[in-house]
């Protein structure tokens, strides 16, 4: 089973990188761009067929290592 984890900064935590990207996009003429927040995507392959178990395991991985829950939140997406 494949999984994709999205890690982003929590709302309210300043994201200077996202701010700079937004600023740059405005500068390039993309005037419609409002707030920008950036984050990371982690693709994983799991030897697990049970979606429930996989999700629980992924949640543990996020809490323990993949995200720093002091400043980051995460979303898990299972694929097939």
């Amino acid at each position: 089973m494949k999984a994709r984890v999205f890690v982003t900064l929590k709302n309210g935590v300043l994201d200077p990188q996202g701010k700079a990207i937004g600023h740059a996009l405005n500068g390039l003429g993309f005037g419609s761009v409002g707030e920008v927040r950036q984050g990371k995507v982690i693709d994983l392959e799991l030897n697990e067929t049970d979606a429930g178990k996989a999700k629980a395991e992924l949640k543990a991985m996020c809490d323990k290592l993949l995200a720093n829950t002091v400043i980051e939140k995460y979303e898990i997406e299972l694929k097939g």
Partner: peptide, 9 residues
């Protein structure tokens, strides 16, 4: 350098 620049990741 303070001109517009997309930050390195």
């Amino acid at each position: 350098m303070s001109g517009e620049e997309i930050p390195m990741t």
